[in-house]
Amino acid sequence: MEPYTGEYEVLTMSELRIRGVRDLPREELFAPGHGLCAGCTAGTIVRHLLKVTGRNTVIVNATGCVEVSTTMHPYTSWRVSWIHVAFENAAAVASGVESAFKVLARKGLIDMSNQYP
């Protein structure tokens, strides 16, 4: 069976009101085929995280199960931007990424409005 490739309604973060299961966005930003153990709910957590954050996301991942299982070269399960650096510096890397976007937008070198809505 082919993966579902129909249209999904993409909601902005402010429009996202999750009252129940049926309100969860249908889009899957986490692809199957990763190497997480069968039944490991890390997969569930990542799927839900990406449903809430949507496509305008940069994931900064520390070294760990999720990192090695989901990005076994040359495959990746992530349909969003993703970076891994080392074991204890995910927060530091994330602050670098955030600062970069902030200052590049201020200098007019990237267009923050040209993101997914």
Binding site: P3, A31, G33, Y75, T76
Partner: peptide, 18 residues
């Protein structure tokens, strides 16, 4: 070591783990 094709892990059919 960058992977530029998002979500290409669908090439790994993990169904054979079952």
């Amino acid at each position: 070591g960058m992977v530029v094709e998002p979500g290409n892990s669908i090439a790994r059919r993990t169904g054979d783990w079952r």
